[in-house]
């Protein structure tokens, strides 16, 4: 090969490389632009620009990043199902174990926020058994804690949080919430033996006393009818009045316990949303 030939070959090679780099450069610029929109919390526009990037990125260089950022943008807009769809696409295009783990975690966190916590727990169970992520077991436990917390299983949440070094605060907090909650089975059980006592247990004294009075009245009328050998009367009053008030009392006790628990849980979640500074779903 003469010197002239070599020079021409090098020129062409340079020409090709330059053209390729130029195209890459535009994609990088587009990625930076979309990311800037995301950082400025302009999520709608960020999604558009990441989608544009994906559309023109024929080689799929940004498939993981763009899909992940689209997912994150949808998540910020509380569109969790859309977010999970794009996180799944990111997961499919993960280039290494770290990216795979991150995208799986994104899916799990969106599931927690979407309140499909049982699915989040299933996914976390799978991650726990995956040997590739054995180094990140504490992180898995941390999110398991959050998944159980959102499933209203505060005791389980406390157990998982206690296994992560830095989060004794969360563990203590969950234990406290669990302790403050009323047991709906205890409320119901109390009302089985003494009508109205379940309501009194949950702090609804007037309702409890009213329930007790109605049950005493209809119980007395029913028993009185049986004593007077008027079985049919006893059955009618017992079935249509006493049993109805008695069942209502059981249901009421359970409902009051659940209502009070809801208040406690909402207060706790409110604290976690606005008062807790650690990593949240």
């Amino acid at each position: 090969m003469t010197k002239a030939k070599v020079n021409i070959f090098i020129f062409c090679l340079f020409f090709l490389t330059e053209a390729n780099l130029n195209a890459q450069n535009y994609l990088t610029k587009q990625f930076d632009y979309a990311k800037k929109l995301f950082n400025n919390e302009q999520y709608f526009d960020a999604i558009t620009e990441f989608k544009r990037l994906l559309f023109f990125d024929e080689e799929g260089t940004y498939k993981f990043e763009a899909n992940r950022f689209i997912g994150l943008s949808y998540k910020e807009g509380a569109k969790f199902s859309d977010a999970i769809f794009y996180f799944t696409l990111a997961e499919m295009n993960a280039k290494n174990d770290d990216e795979l783990f991150e995208s799986k975690m994104d899916i799990i966190r969106s599931n927690i926020l979407r309140r499909t916590t049982s699915h989040a727990i299933e996914l976390l169970d799978l991650l726990e058994t995956d040997k590739r992520f054995s180094q990140r077991i504490k992180e898995i436990y941390y999110w398991k804690g959050w998944a159980y917390l959102f499933s209203d299983k505060w005791d389980d949440a406390a157990n998982y949080f206690s296994q992560t070094d830095s989060n004794k605060t969360l563990s203590t907090f969950c234990k406290e919430v669990d302790k403050n909650k009323y047991s709906s089975s205890v409320a119901e059980l109390l009302s089985i033996f003494i009508p109205g006592s379940g309501q009194i247990y949950t702090g609804h004294y007037l309702s409890g006393l009213l329930s007790l009075s109605w049950n005493l009245l209809w119980g007395y009328v029913t028993i009185n009818a049986f004593i007077a050998n008027r079985v049919f009367d006893g059955l009618a009053v017992g079935n249509f009045l006493w049993l109805r008030f008695y069942n209502g009392n059981l249901q009421n006790a359970k409902n009051f316990a659940e209502e009070e628990n809801l208040k406690i849980v909402n207060q706790a979640l409110n604290y976690l949303q606005f008062g807790y500074n650690g990593t949240k779903p």
Binding site: C12, L13, F15, L16, A19, N20, N22, A23
Partner: peptide, 9 residues
């Protein structure tokens, strides 16, 4: 080579 590079351009 140019036919390869031109689609890029």
């Amino acid at each position: 080579l140019c036919t390869i590079s031109f689609p890029q351009e």
